[in-house]
Amino acid sequence: MLKYIFKRILSSIVVLIGVVTITFFIARVIPSNPEVKWAGQRATAEQLEAARIELGLDKSLPEQYVIYLGDLLHGNLGKSLRTHQPVAAELKRYIPATLELVLLAFLLAVLIGIPLGIYSAKKKDRMLDHISRFFSIGAVSLPTFWVALFFQLIFYKSLSLLPIGGRLSVEATIFQTMPNITGLLLLDCLLTGNFSLMGDAFLHIIMPCITIALYPIGLVARMTRSALLEILGEDYITAGHSYGLRDGKMLWKYALKNSLGTTATDVALSMGYTLTDTFLVEAIFSWPGIGSYISGAVTTLDYPAIIGVTLFGACCYIILNLLADIIIASDPRVRL
């Protein structure tokens, strides 16, 4: 077991180095003038030369790569070409907003998706199953950017129920002191007992959260249903039936417990992707998260920022993947 974990960690590190290498070289072949971005569009030749030296562009590509790896080991992701600020510090500022959004979306996905999947499996091939199947497949077939536009129209303009975007109302931003413990605003408010601010934040998160949650809701419902049906088809369940165990008890006690593992793994992995794929939704809802940050970086080809976000996304995925594998491996039924 320990040997397996050690091997998995080792191979994760190899993968991580691969990711770093590929992003580094992609960034260096993008046709753009980083030194001009750094020094300004009308900089003089000397200023540009100074910028080249400051950015280390005067060195050969392999040298730059080694320096970059060294910096990474110290948690230094370089400086953004646009804002001249350390990318790591900027990520630290934008990640919590996205994390809050994605965590809440996946919580919602679990709360809705699992019951939906269970009922669907229980009533297989009946009307309810068809409806839930249609709903969950529909949810993964919708272009999110399109859904976001509709939500705004309905809930802000027509019903005036929810704010159109942003993380807080103007008044709250100006007159309230922000609690800053975890960076997850809702949680921080809860911890400090600031319920009025929490309410404001909650109203703001509803629309983007539901938009993002649509995909994982469909995913979780489908996964739960398939996993359950698969287990319901297993011999021991059939055996249980023949021993006269009640359907309900079978479903809860044996089937569901065994199906949750696979579902959880897949949900965790898809969360890794979602963390950096929220930018279409964030742009539409003016959500100040990593997605907004990357949009700005992409439009100006601010490559230290792009690499930073890519590495963050890849790390999330690799770590979640590693955890999932270790959890599966610790299941005594799995032989390695």
């Binding site: 993968v15 691969g18 992609i26 046709p31 963390l275 950096t276 794929d277 992409v298 996304g313 995925y317």
Partner: peptide
């Protein structure tokens, strides 16, 4: 397989964006 792991761990939309930028 390590190579596939590397490509799998990229956020797909982000990888596509980077490639299109190139």
């Amino acid at each position: 397989m390590r190579l596939t792991d590397v490509f799998l761990s990229f956020p797909p939309l982000l990888l596509a964006i980077a490639m299109v930028a190139v």
